[in-house]
């Protein structure tokens, strides 16, 4: 069953918490991975791979650069999840 927007944000929050140590409540739709959540370009790859597994979605490398905020990633996953 496809995940809801809320479930995706919660899932991304857990992933970002695991990878960057940011508290889950700080991971909000308007937050930028790089500027707000201490996720550098290498850690972003980890976030993407973890999200792919969790939400059964493929995020090609060329799309990763468009995922600036948690909101961008959430919309992408909502649209492409299996």
């Amino acid at each position: 069953m496809a995940a809801t927007q809320e479930e995706i944000v919660d899932g991304l929050a857990e992933i970002v918490n695991e990878i960057a140590g940011i508290p889950v409540e700080d991971v909000q739709l308007d937050k930028s991975f790089t500027d707000d959540l201490d996720v550098d370009s290498l850690s972003m790859v980890e976030v993407v791979v973890a999200a792919e597994e969790r939400f059964d979605v493929k995020i090609p490398d060329e799309d990763v650069k468009n995922l600036k905020t948690v909101g961008d990633a959430t919309s992408y996953i909502l649209k492409h999840q299996g």
Partner: peptide, 8 residues
């Protein structure tokens, strides 16, 4: 050390 540091 904090976990994110240990990871990388």
């Amino acid at each position: 050390l904090p976990r994110p540091l240990v990871r990388k």
